[in-house]
Simulated scan of single mutants.
Amino acid sequence: MTADPRRTPPGGSMTAFAALHRAGKPLLLPNAWDHASARVFAGQGFPAIGTTSLGVAAAAGLPDGAAATREETLRLAVALGSGPFQLSVDAEGGFSDDPDEVAEFARELHAAGAVGVNLEDGLGPVARHAAKIAAVKQAAPGLFVNARTDTHWLGDGDGTLARLDAYRRAGADGVFVPGLTDLRAIEALLRHLDVPLNVLYSPGGPSVPHLADAGVHRISLGSLLYRRALGAASEAMAEIRAGRPPTGATPSYEAVAGLGSR
C-alpha cells in the first residue's frame, strides 16, 4: 500500500508536535489501534495520538515486533493522518534492516500525515539503528524521530547512554526508554540528555504527576489501552455468561457509529 502524496496534510507539524514535549508538563500520549479508538482519544481532548504496534498486529492476527505489519501500519497512518490531532506512528524497527527501505517507509508515513515516528533498536547493532535514523531524517526531515532503545525493556539497562548518544548524533529528535521506571534513574538520565525523554507509563510504576515532577517530556501508554479494552470485553462476556449485566462504561450505538464519520 502506498500513501497518496497528493493528500492534504493535517494542520499538525513536527514543530508543533515537538512543542508538546515539555519538562514538567509532559505530553501524555494515548496509543490507538484503529480509527475509532483514535477518535475517542481525540474527543477527550488529547492533542496528539500515537499508534500501538501490538494493537495493530494483534488485530490483524500477526506477530508484534517481527516486521510483519508494514502494510497494516501504513494503512492505519493513512486512515488517521488527516485527523484533528498530531499523529505519531509506532513503526517497530522500520520493518527492514536496510536504512534506505526504512527511510522510504518513513517518507510514506509523512505523506500520509504523520508528524512523528517511533523506531526501536531491539538491542540490535547500534550503528545499524543510527544509520536508519540518519536515513529517515534525510528522507523525511518533517518527521519527529523518537529513537527507542530496549536496554531496560529487554536487557538490564546497560549501554543505555551510549545508545542514546549515538542515536542523538544520528539526528534523533527525542529518545524513548520503555521499561525505565525508577525515578532516580530517570532524573539521572535527564541530566545527561539534551533532547526530550519519553518513558512508558506502567500501572505499577510512578504516576503521571511524579513523572512530570521528575522532568519527563513525554509519557506513552503503549499497548496498555488496547489490552485494557480486550480485558473489559472479556470481563463483560464473563458477567453475561454468569447471568449478570456487564459493568463499566458502554458507549451507545449512536456514539460509536458517529466515530465512523471523518
Rank of each mutant, 00 (worst) to 15 (best):
M1I: 04
T2W: 08
R6K: 14
T8H: 12
P9G: 10
T15C: 00
T15L: 13
A16L: 09
F17P: 07
A19V: 05
H21W: 00
R22H: 02
R22G: 06
R22N: 01
R22A: 02
K25E: 15
P30L: 10
P30G: 02
A32Y: 11
D34E: 13
H35L: 15
A38F: 12
F41M: 15
G43R: 12
G43A: 10
G45W: 03
F46V: 02
F46A: 10
A48M: 05
I49R: 06
T51E: 12
T52C: 04
L54F: 14
G55P: 09
A57M: 02
A59F: 00
A59P: 00
P63A: 05
D64Y: 06
D64I: 03
G65F: 07
A67G: 08
A68G: 07
R70K: 14
E72D: 12
A77C: 09
G83D: 08
F85V: 02
Q86S: 15
L87P: 08
S88F: 07
V89M: 12
D90R: 10
D90V: 09
D90S: 12
A91C: 12
G93F: 08
G94H: 05
D97H: 11
P99C: 00
E101V: 10
G113M: 05
G116A: 10
D121P: 11
G122C: 11
L123P: 03
P125T: 07
V126H: 07
V126N: 01
V126F: 03
A127V: 06
R128M: 14
A131C: 03
A131Q: 07
A135M: 07
V136I: 14
K137S: 05
A140S: 12
G142D: 15
G142R: 01
F144C: 11
V145T: 08
D150K: 10
H152S: 04
H152E: 12
W153R: 15
D158S: 15
L161Y: 09
A162V: 13
R163V: 07
Y167T: 09
A170G: 01
A170T: 04
P178W: 08
L183Y: 02
R184W: 01
L189D: 08
L190G: 11
D194T: 14
D194G: 08
V195F: 13
N198C: 03
N198T: 13
V199N: 07
S202T: 11
P203A: 04
P206F: 06
L211Y: 08
D213V: 09
A214Q: 04
G215H: 08
H217M: 04
S223A: 15
G231T: 05
A232R: 14
A233S: 05
E235V: 03
A238L: 14
I240W: 04
I240K: 10
R241E: 14
R241N: 11
A242D: 13
A242L: 04
G243V: 05
P245C: 00
P245L: 01
P251L: 14
P251C: 01
A257D: 07
A257S: 09
A257G: 00
